[in-house]
């Protein structure tokens, strides 16, 4: 297993090179640089702009700059932001917890809702519950999350406040007026988590339902039942385990989406995470910051894929490592 993990980690290196090269090329094949915009500004002398360009190293051809960037990266140096000259590493480390918190909370919430929903649908196949759950699952899956976010804000913040009901906060991670305790954080999490996880709930409950149905038709389920085990044990222990494995692949596939797809949700809810940082950096043409966040997104994606595969192998004895 250790050898496998090491091999997978090594295989990440060429992919990281590919991802960063691609991003660097996309950024630099584009005419115009942050400095070029300064050149259009009549208040700034051309010589000053040229000097700044030289200072930032933007006067060299871009493949050369890519190699320089890569060399710095190997030494653990992500450089400074073109926007405010502050070290990028500090900024990234400050936003990663927020992004992970949102992603993990959405993941957990989606599983808590989707698993019982899917299992119960399969157990009570073709019942009223099954039909309702299937229909609402599809309805959840197709919803545009940015619209859902706005609707949630409207209902649970604006309308609730207008009606004098308790309302939920809609911006940031903590209350600016001295919040920050557990309850405050939880309240700030609720709406973004719902907006981010509803589509997952719809997709996952359908998957769990269909793989549970498949598992339930197996002989070992009949054996377990005939041994006199309770339904609960049969469904949630015997049947759920094999069904869960097929869910795992999907959870692994959804992780990059939860991390990167949170951009819009983070922007709407002013969530201080990596998605919003990326969006701001792109808007400011802060190229060094864009490179760093892309790198982090790619690394997190690959680590989550690795984690899924490791869990897969650990849980399913039928799967062997090559």
């Amino acid at each position: 297993m250790t050898a496998y993990i090491i091999r997978r980690l090594l295989a990440m290196i060429p992919i990281i090179l590919g991802v960063t090269f691609l991003t660097f090329a996309i950024i630099n094949l584009m005419p115009g640089s942050p400095v070029l915009r300064l050149r259009d500004n009549p208040k700034i002398r051309p010589e000053a702009a040229a000097a700044l360009e030289k200072q930032l190293g933007l006067d060299k051809p871009w493949p050369e700059r890519y190699l320089t960037w890569l060399g710095d990266l190997v030494r653990g140096d992500l450089g400074v932001s073109l926007y405010n000259q502050l070290p990028i590493a500090d900024r990234i480390w400050s936003v990663i917890p927020a992004t992970l918190l949102l992603a993990v909370a959405s993941l957990v919430f989606a599983l808590i809702v989707a698993v019982p929903m899917g299992v119960y649908s399969a157990v009570r196949h073709r019942s009223l519950f099954d039909q309702t759950a299937t229909v609402s699952g599809v309805a959840m899956y197709a919803i545009p999350d940015f619209w859902l976010a706005l609707i949630l804000v409207w209902v649970f913040a604006l309308q609730a406040k207008a009606l004098g009901l308790p309302s939920l906060p809609v911006g940031g991670m903590t209350d600016a007026r001295g919040g920050g305790d557990f309850l405050d954080r939880l309240q700030h999490l609720i709406l973004p988590v719902i907006a981010l996880s509803l589509a997952q709930i719809g997709g996952w409950s359908a998957i769990i339902r269909s793989s549970m149905l498949e598992v339930l038709s197996n002989d070992f389920i009949r054996t377990a039942k005939s041994k006199g085990l309770s339904d609960r044990v049969v469904y949630y222990v015997h049947a759920f385990k094999p069904a869960f494995i097929s869910l795992l692949t999907l959870v692994g596939l959804a992780l990059p989406g939860l991390l990167g797809g949170a951009i819009i949700i983070e922007t709407i809810f002013a969530w201080p995470g990596m998605g919003r940082l990326t969006f701001e950096a792109i808007g400011r043409r802060d190229y060094t910051m864009i490179m760093a966040t892309t790198l982090m997104f790619a690394v997190l994606t690959m680590l989550s894929n690795l984690l899924t595969d490791v869990a897969y192998v650990t849980l399913d004895p039928r799967i062997r490592l090559e």
Partner: peptide, 17 residues
């Protein structure tokens, strides 16, 4: 490589630039 870059950030980058 493409599957390791989350799509949305990449899309925003390309469309913005």
């Amino acid at each position: 490589v493409l599957l390791s870059v989350p799509g949305l950030p990449l899309l925003i980058l390309v469309t913005t630039l």
